[in-house]
């Protein structure tokens, strides 16, 4: 192996993905907007050369993001690639505090895909867009030869509007902030895995794919002290908390006992040898909120459709900088690192 090649782990959202971005993409595309490293780029509608490194709060900032969806199988209990493609991009916009408005959708379709499948997925996108109150305003369709794509890939890009008062960034978590998670972790990853061949359980798990923008709206109306927010998708809660800790140059301590997890998801993780902290979510968010507003925030989130099980799971500390630690049930502590490589079922 003299020539380095892309392996699946580069797409897992964990350390390899970060290394690839930092060593290959970032140096070539570098600019202050990209460098912010949040789920969406935030910028005023002006010539990029006039944007300084320090973000000025102004009325007419927009948020912009894009994401490609490649998932096998195309549908699973609780969702499909269409709903995911809309919700994922809507959530990326919501995580910087923007109100999502417009989406584009590009389809790369493998020759031979049944039209009925495509119709079902596009209908599901229509429904998700309606729920999130966004419009799909541009699109593209490409068909590739059999074998060049796995059924269907979807890319969506999205634009949202920011109000001048909002400054939410993964780099803005403050020591003392409470870390809130909006519900049970791992539901999506386990649902997709169990729908895949070979890991079949007789129960059907339900994925949590959902648009979170309405809950975020309610949160931002409750408090101006939401400092950092992110949706723990690929790489799971552990990877997202590490991103926030690194970008904010702070430490994060979470309590094992407080982390909400469905019993059947916990059981699947036991059997497959997964750590639920690393399993993907598509309808959950993590927020770092000033302590004086945290309790109220949890109450508000619990009233939202997708936040019934919101709870405080830990706290932002001044250090150790860039690290996430967990107090275990039996009173020990451990480091919680980013996901390394990709997740494989293991018997070890």
């Amino acid at each position: 192996m003299r020539k380095a090649r892309i392996i699946l782990g580069h797409g897992s959202g964990g350390k390899l993905s970060h290394d690839l971005i930092e060593s290959l993409f970032m140096p070539r595309f570098i600019n202050p907007i990209l460098q912010a490293g949040d789920d969406s780029a935030v910028f005023p509608l002006t010539d990029s050369d006039r944007i300084s490194k320090r973000r000025q709060l102004s009325e007419d900032e927009i948020a912009f993001t894009t994401d490609s969806y490649v998932v096998n199988p195309l549908s699973w209990p609780g969702g499909d690639i269409g709903r995911l493609a809309v919700c994922g991009t809507v959530n990326d916009l919501a995580m910087v505090g923007a109100t999502p408005l417009y989406l584009s959708a590009a389809f790369v379709i493998e020759e031979g895909l049944p039209i009925s499948t495509l119709r079902r997925i596009v209908t599901s996108m229509q429904r998700a867009a309606k729920e999130a109150r966004v419009k799909i305003v541009a699109g593209d369709t490409k068909v590739v030869e059999k074998g060049s794509a796995d059924g269907l890939f979807i890319n969506t890009a999205g634009v949202g509007l920011l109000s001048g008062e909002v400054k939410i960034s993964g780099s803005n978590a403050q020591p003392g902030d409470m870390v809130i998670v909006s519900g049970t972790i791992g539901d999506h990853g386990i649902a997709v895995l169990s729908a895949r061949e070979g890991l079949t359980f007789s129960n059907s798990f339900k994925s949590d794919v959902a648009p979170l923008n309405h809950m975020v709206d309610a949160m931002l109306r409750t408090s101006h002290k939401v400092h950092a927010m992110r949706d723990p998708t690929r790489g799971g809660l552990a990877t997202t908390l590490n991103e926030i800790a690194r970008q904010s140059k702070a430490g994060i301590c979470i309590l094992e006992e407080q982390i909400p997890i469905r019993e059947e998801v916990a059981a699947a993780c036991e059997i497959l040898g997964y750590d639920p902290l690393y399993v993907a979510n598509e309808g959950k968010l993590v927020a770092c909120v000033a302590p004086e507003d945290a309790e109220r925030m949890v109450q508000v989130m619990r009233k939202a459709r997708y936040g019934h099980e919101a709870t405080i799971i830990g706290e932002v500390l001044s250090g150790p900088k860039g690290r996430v630690i967990m107090r275990t049930r039996v009173g020990g502590t451990r480091i919680v690192d980013m996901l390394t490589g990709d997740m494989l079922p293991r018997i070890c």
Binding site: N203, E264, A267, E270, I271
Partner: peptide
């Protein structure tokens, strides 16, 4: 058919 935590498999 075995069960743990409400989860069943063969």
């Amino acid at each position: 058919l075995v069960e743990v935590g409400g989860l069943a498999r063969q």
